[in-house]
């Protein structure tokens, strides 16, 4: 299988004044295959978010390499990086905070389209389509982030991430801030999208809940203290964990 996203030996160390440095991510390597959903699981502080921020280039990595569709984006800047964002999108942890409080949801969803030069009328039409795909009515385009519920806002965030048809979708704890019932709805939506898009969409699913990963992902990586300690099919990992941390993680929910 062809890899859409390859991460090689990625590292990040945060320097702190007067205290020892924090090695947030240490030599992480993995590949996200075409059409695959790869889960990354780990406790808070294990470096998941740092890893994701490095992959999306919101944070510079100290060492290592990121290849998106075979293209090295490790040091991409400006126009090159904006090109990369047409292939890679992210859904954030807190839906309401990921939209500009002074702009409507429709404005946020259409932003990437407008930035890529689409005419205003087309953007409006595409935004309405996207909202419908994500289970909202097109009336939501005119609402502000504080006027909708968390679940509705996360649906809008998914619509925004899908707007320019990326090949890689990164969900950074996309369901953690939501109620359990809403979590399931969002997962159903993501599952529907996977079925529709088939091989043209690969998902990197960051989560701390092993049950969700088992339900949703094809493959799982377990991260602990900045390293990947285990990799495999979710069922195998749960049935026969090899690393003591994975064992503890599974014990904690059973």
């Amino acid at each position: 299988m062809e890899a859409v996203l390859q991460v090689k030996n990625l590292s990040k160390t945060f320097a702190r004044k007067g205290r020892p440095d924090v090695r947030a991510v240490e030599g992480v390597s993995f590949s996200l295959l075409k059409g695959e959903c790869l889960g990354i699981i780990g406790e808070s502080g294990s470096g998941k978010t740092t890893l994701v921020n490095m992959i999306t280039r919101l944070l510079d990595s100290d060492d290592g390499q990121i290849l998106l569709n075979g293209k090295d984006i490790t040091r991409a800047r400006g126009r090159e990086l904006r090109e990369a964002y047409r292939e890679m999108q992210m859904i954030f942890q807190s839906p309401a905070e990921s939209f500009d409080p002074r702009r409507t949801l429709g404005d946020g969803i259409g932003e990437s389209l407008r930035n890529s030069g689409m005419a205003a009328g087309q953007v409006r039409q595409k935004t309405a389509e996207l909202l419908q795909t994500c289970g909202l009515t097109d009336g939501f385009a005119g609402r502000f982030p504080h006027e909708v519920s968390g679940g509705q806002c996360q649906r809008a965030a998914i619509a925004r991430a899908l707007a320019i048809d990326p090949s890689v979708l990164i969900c950074d704890e996309a369901t953690s801030a939501l109620d359990v019932t809403i979590q399931q709805e969002i997962l159903h939506l993501l599952n529907d999208l996977r079925r529709q898009k088939k091989d043209s969409l690969s998902i990197l699913f960051i989560c701390h809940d092993i049950a969700l990963v088992q339900q949703f992902c094809d493959r799982v990586l377990v991260m602990y203290q900045g390293r990947i300690v285990e990799e495999g099919l979710p069922d195998d990992v749960i049935r026969s964990p090899r690393h003591p941390y994975t064992q503890r993680l599974i014990d904690s929910i059973l």
Binding site: T56, L58, G78, R82, Y85, R86, M88, Q89, M90, F92, Q93, S94, E97, S98, F99, D100, P101, G108, E111, S112, N115, S116, A157, R160, I164
Partner: peptide, 13 residues
């Protein structure tokens, strides 16, 4: 804040 990161990902300079 996340909305500025989202704007960055939406291709804003």
């Amino acid at each position: 804040s996340a909305y500025l990161k989202a704007a960055r990902l939406a291709g804003c300079s």
